[in-house]
Simulated scan of single mutants.
Amino acid sequence: MVKIIRTFDFSANDFFDYIEDSLTKEIKKARNNNKNVKIATGTRYALKGRDGTINTKVVINKFERNKIYSATFTSLGEVVTADYATKDTNKGCKITLTEDIQTYDPEQHNKLANLFYNFMYHRSAQEELNKLANGVQKFKEKR
């Protein structure tokens, strides 16, 4: 499991405006219609790959605006849960990202393999959080 805490120069409201906009577009595309989408705990959808087959199933585990967004992604036998907890501070929005790959069992690997895996996994999570923060900043500037 990876846990990253970072503070960004935007508000929790900005973060959730971006998340809702992105999820709404993604769900409309996945469902192949333009009907209204309500982002809520329990929402499910499936993302198709470039070849048109379903590659990733998504379940929103928890959605409390300006507090938490949690989702589980299942793809090619891998199950990943990502939690984004937000809190506004006087320095900006503090985001705590917690990711857990439920299908990785460290007991099945040696210490060196686990160390390398944890390093790469942590690095990947940091990159994703930075991409998300950049997306929030660009979205905020467009409004």
Rank of each mutant, 00 (worst) to 15 (best):
27 I>V: 15
57 K>H: 14
75 S>W: 04
73 F>N: 12
71 A>C: 03
128 E>Q: 15
104 Y>S: 08
80 V>Y: 07
58 V>K: 07
97 L>F: 04
81 T>Y: 00
40 A>Q: 14
78 E>A: 13
3 K>E: 13
126 Q>S: 14
115 L>P: 00
62 K>V: 08
74 T>A: 13
143 R>V: 08
40 A>F: 04
20 E>R: 04
65 R>H: 13
29 K>E: 15
15 F>Q: 07
50 R>W: 10
36 N>R: 14
17 D>R: 14
110 N>P: 06
40 A>I: 11
47 L>A: 10
47 L>W: 02
48 K>N: 12
91 K>F: 04
14 D>G: 02
136 V>A: 08
15 F>T: 12
59 V>Y: 10
76 L>D: 14
8 F>E: 06
20 E>D: 06
100 D>P: 02
52 G>D: 09
55 N>I: 11
50 R>M: 10
98 T>E: 01
86 T>R: 09
10 F>N: 07
8 F>A: 05
72 T>V: 02
37 V>W: 08
45 Y>F: 15
7 T>A: 03
73 F>K: 04
83 D>P: 06
55 N>P: 05
102 Q>D: 03
13 N>T: 15
128 E>S: 14
140 K>A: 02
116 F>Q: 10
18 Y>I: 01
9 D>W: 00
137 Q>G: 01
24 T>V: 05
4 I>K: 07
23 L>P: 02
16 F>D: 13
131 K>S: 15
60 I>G: 09
136 V>T: 00
59 V>K: 12
104 Y>M: 01
68 I>R: 12
70 S>H: 05
59 V>W: 04
102 Q>F: 02
35 K>Y: 11
107 E>R: 04
35 K>I: 02
6 R>K: 15
2 V>Q: 11
4 I>T: 12
46 A>C: 10
14 D>W: 09
42 G>D: 01
30 A>D: 10
50 R>C: 06
13 N>M: 11
97 L>M: 04
30 A>K: 02
108 Q>M: 08
78 E>S: 11
55 N>K: 13
141 E>Q: 06
125 A>D: 07
95 I>C: 05
108 Q>L: 10
62 K>S: 11
85 A>W: 05
16 F>V: 06
113 A>F: 13
28 K>T: 09
120 M>S: 14
108 Q>F: 05
91 K>V: 05
15 F>P: 00
85 A>G: 06
35 K>V: 10
90 N>C: 01
101 I>R: 11
102 Q>C: 01
31 R>I: 09
